Structure formats: C-alpha cells, structure tokens
Simulated scan of single mutants.
Amino acid sequence: MDTKLILKLNQRIIEKAKENASNKKMSLSRIVEAYLQSLTTKNDSSEFEISPFVKSIVTGTEIRVELDYKRKYSDHLIEKYK
C-alpha cells in the first residue's frame, strides 16, 4: 500500500531532482522510494544505481557546480559499449 510522505527540502535541490528524474523517465517519488529501500535492505542489488546527485540530497553534501553530469554519463556509456 502506498502512503503519502511530505518532505521539506531546499527548493533548488527539488528542482534539480525533478529534472534528474525526468531525464531518467522516472518519478521523483520512485527515485526516493528506491533510495530508501536501498538503505533499509541488506541486499545491495537494486533496480538501478543511485546517482551522486540523489545521494547528496540525503547526505546534504554539496555537488560541485562545475561537474558536467551529462558528459560524465556520456563518457561512461562510450567506455561501457566499446
């Protein structure tokens, strides 16, 4: 059964998280649920890898502004499919 959860987060983080979720064609709720599930289960296999951005939301760690995630992801895909 799904239950509603209300969170108070920094507006800038919410906007970036929504953009990130949209790029992955997932809902922000699903991403948060998957992250919380990964925290509460001992099995490390999850449906998808949790990005540094999502991890930073929980830890409060700032992400470097100059970090180009699209480029990093592109480089990752190029390396993966060589």
Rank of each mutant, 00 (worst) to 15 (best):
T41L: 13
K16N: 07
L28G: 09
S56E: 03
I14H: 06
L9D: 00
I78S: 13
I57S: 04
K25Y: 04
I14K: 12
I31H: 02
T40C: 12
S46G: 15
V32P: 06
T59N: 01
R12A: 14
K80S: 12
E79C: 02
A34T: 08
M1E: 06
L36Y: 10
D2T: 10
K42M: 06
L77H: 07
V58M: 06
R71C: 06
I13Q: 07
F48D: 01
T61E: 10
S46Q: 14
L36K: 07
S46E: 08
A21Q: 00
V58R: 03
E47H: 06
T59K: 05
N43L: 09
Y81F: 14
I14E: 00
K24Q: 10
R71F: 12
S22G: 09
D44P: 15
A34H: 10
H76T: 07
T61S: 08
G60I: 01
L7S: 00
Y73L: 15
V65W: 04
K55V: 04
L67H: 11
M1S: 14
I6T: 12
F48S: 04
S51Q: 01
K55L: 03
I78H: 12
I31C: 08
K82T: 07
K72F: 11
D44H: 07
L28H: 06
I50K: 03
S27F: 09
E33T: 12
Y69Q: 09
K82M: 07
T61K: 15
F53K: 04
V58L: 07
T59M: 01
L39S: 04
Q37E: 11
K8V: 06
R30G: 09
L9H: 05
I14S: 07
E49R: 08
D68F: 05
N43W: 02
K42N: 09
I13A: 13
K8A: 06
K42G: 15
S27I: 01
L36C: 14
E15H: 13
Y73T: 13
I6V: 11
K70N: 14
T61P: 00
E49I: 05
T41A: 13
A34M: 09
N23G: 14
L77V: 10
Y81A: 11
K18D: 06
R64Q: 06
L5D: 00
F48T: 02
